[in-house]
Design a binder for these strands. Structure first.
Length: 492
RNA sequence: CGGGGUGUAGCGUAGCCCGGUAUCGCGUCUGCUUUGGGAGCAGAAGGUCGUAGGUUCGAAUCCUGCCACCCCGACCA
């Protein structure tokens, strides 16, 4: 395989695309805007799924599955939500193909097979789910409903990029129903914390928790909370959202319950989701010019063992040790790959596994066999060390923990260094252009101002951080009074 | 959807302006030598030149439509 190399500092977009290619994560498909997620990429997504799924169940949720199609009449029931998505919906209008009488071997849509009611391919599932919940909820005893689904959704995007924005993508969407506003808000915030913990502890990406402004809010939500990450090129990436939906969907679908006093009340709702976009975040937050860098907790392969040898006799000796090491590490629940291909030289293998981001590489050669040692190299900082074989599994485990910590610390330092205050409009623009990152600035709280700032700078308000410090000031743009700073950034 | 660019073997490309059946590197296959940072030599295989039309004796090359991808806009939870 010939690997295309572009430095991160030279062309960030191309660098990103190359990592997706070279690390064998995904490729473009025959369908515009849709990707094929390849086995290695999917293995990483599965790791994410496993941990998130565990966290969802731990917080009392169950998985279920709702249909891909949403009848148009249901879709449009919650008007704000429907309008928000209308421009990017795929629509099914027919259900049959027939042979083309004019063109043998070709098929055409059967004009007689038009659906009475069009079906929308779900861009999100609130409509179909709330039309179902209506039937499930009569009494306060039926609440709360705490459901998650793993699914694909379709949003007809103008411009796509592998993982970051594709026409079809995979995600999970949680949809919960509650008897009180308080409980729904608590649920919204709880799931935001689940996401933030996952991002920080598993993906090793520090995030800022915040609330979206009206412009950036989910269509149909009262409040949209988010976690925002900072990529290495200084652009922000929304990594997850959690919505407090109030009673909007309950009203639209007439979902009421009898409370303890026998009175009818509207149900309170939340929804929350993360998608395969997290793969994009993972790539852009940690990787370097040599390829992908994976945090150990998400690495499909923790350790790769590469044999060094000059002849069959040496290969046999080295293999014996390698297999012993492999078994010992697997005994500690580590995923280990012994790369005994005879078709590639060690140097090639080193480079290839680095491209794929495997956290730890162990090389074993004749010298090591003699000394009872192995050469251990960590992917995150390339540090090389000779380790004695004694108690190797524990040492490797500690090393993996150290790598996980180090990757996080590095990303955290980067984030800290890329949040900068601006107090004048000139300063604001200069920071955005010269440094990127988050710019913390006062804002008068109006959508008009936010819109004008976006038009002039391409920066949007990523969020109002939770527990934000209140502070008197004047809006960076309009000069009007402001009570707090918000975070601006250019974003994906 | 607007502007710009690209599409030639698995990957990366030359050739296109000025029409004559395609260049080079990597990879692949065979053999030998190699193996502690992307191996060397020798030989071999592999191509509807994105796609559909048109012009022409003849099209990778010129013209038109379409498709896909990349960059910039618009759009976007």
């Amino acid at each position: 395989m010939a690997f295309e190399k572009v430095k991160r500092s030279e062309d960030y977009s191309q660098w990103y695309n190359n990592i997706v290619n070279n690390a064998d994560l995904a490729e473009h498909s025959a369908v515009r805007g849709c990707m094929v997620i390849k086995p290695y990429g999917y293995a990483i997504w599965e790791k994410m799924q496993q941990e998130l799924d565990r966290k969802f169940k731990e917080t009392g949720h169950s998985n279920a599955y709702f249909p891909l199609f949403v009848p148009k009449s249901l879709f449009e029931a919650e008007e704000t939500n429907a309008e928000g998505f209308a421009k990017e919906c795929a629509v099914v209008t027919h259900y049959r193909l027939i042979n083309d009488p004019k063109n043998k071997g070709k098929l055409i849509i059967d004009p007689d097979a038009r659906l009475e009611e069009e079906l929308i391919v779900r861009p999100t599932s609130e409509a179909i789910i709330w039309s179902t919940y209506k039937n499930w909820i009569q009494s306060y005893r039926d609440l709360p409903i705490l459901i998650n689904q793993w699914a694909n959704v379709v949003r007809w995007e103008m411009r796509t990029r592998l993982f970051l924005r594709t026409t079809e993508f995979l995600w999970q969407e949680g949809h919960t129903a509650h008897s009180t506003e308080q409980e729904a808000i608590e649920e919204t915030l709880q799931m935001l914390d689940v996401y933030a913990n996952f991002a920080q502890n598993f993906m090793a990406i520090p995030v800022i928790k915040g609330v979206k402004t009206a412009n950036e809010r989910f269509a149909g939500a009262i409040d949209t909370y988010c976690i925002e990450g900072m990529m290495q090129d200084g652009k922000a990436l929304q990594m997850g959202t959690s919505h407090f939906l109030g009673q909007n969907f309950a009203k639209a679908f007439d979902v009421k319950f009898a409370n303890k006093l026998g009175n009818q009340e509207l149900v309170w709702a939340t929804s929350w989701g993360v998608s395969t976009r997290l793969m994009g975040a993972l790539i852009m937050a940690h990787s370097d010019d040599d390829g992908l860098v994976l945090p150990p907790k998400l690495a499909p392969i923790h350790v790769v063992i590469i044999p060094i040898y000059r002849n069959e006799e040496e290969f046999n000796k080295v293999t014996e040790i390698a297999l012993k090491v492999k078994l010992e590490l697997e005994g500690k629940s580590l995923s280990v790959k012994f790369d005994n291909r005879d078709t590639h030289k060690p140097g090639f293998k080193f480079a290839e596994w680095e491209l794929k981001g495997v956290p730890v590489r162990i090389a074993i050669g004749p010298r090591d066999v003699e000394n009872g040692s192995v050469e251990v190299v960590r992917r995150d900082n390339k540090e090389k060390q000779i380790m004695n074989m004694a108690d190797l599994a524990n040492k490797i485990n500690h090393l993996l923990e150290a790598i996980q910590d180090n990757i996080y610390l590095k990303a955290n330092t980067f984030l800290d260094n890329n949040i900068r205050p601006a107090d004048t409009w000139e300063e604001f623009i200069e920071l955005l252009d010269a440094k990127g990152g988050f710019v913390s600035a006062h804002w008068d709280g109006t959508s008009e101002t936010e819109e004008l700032i976006k038009e002039q700078t391409k920066a949007t308000i990523r969020c109002v951080p939770l527990q934000n410090k209140l502070e008197e000031g004047s809006c960076i743009f309009s000069g009007k009074p402001s009570v707090q700073r918000v975070l601006f950034a250019r974003s994906y």
